[in-house]
Amino acid sequence: MIINDPEIQNLPEGMKQETPFSVPEGYFENFSSRLMERIKLEKKPRIFKRTQRTLRPALAIAATLAALILAGYFIIRLNTNNGGKTEPVQEFADVIDYYIYDFDDETIISVFNDETDLNYLNNIYKEEEIARYLSEDNDLDYSELQELY
């Protein structure tokens, strides 16, 4: 136990610092030689699991089909919708928002700033500063914020 750490002292008594994990016999003795064999065989090796290898082509095909269907749908909508101009524009904006671009913080802040005229948004904060501010001042969990970020 880390006796001097008050946080750890709060954990229930009998809690051990040991893990329940073990390794196959001889695993560490043979690991380096197996790895060196692999390095010799592969110039720049990549290790993928079987499931991922199987799924990758299927996912690529599915993504391509989805993109084609989406593009086709909007082309048809654009050609058939003669009435208003705002609806397709809005739809495109939605698609861009949700499917295509990941805007960075600065873009979002500057757009929001233009829209709302709020001066305090002129400051450019780093991700970590924003997360820490939220965590410290609002009793939110810093690492969860980072994860959600």
């Binding site: 809690m15 040991e18 893990t19 329940p20 969860e144």
Partner: peptide
Amino acid sequence: PYVNGDDIQIKLQKAILALPEKQ
């Protein structure tokens, strides 16, 4: 097959798994 600790160790591991990855 290579997890073979006692109940307390397993319980602690389950509690840790409930945390977000960075925590």
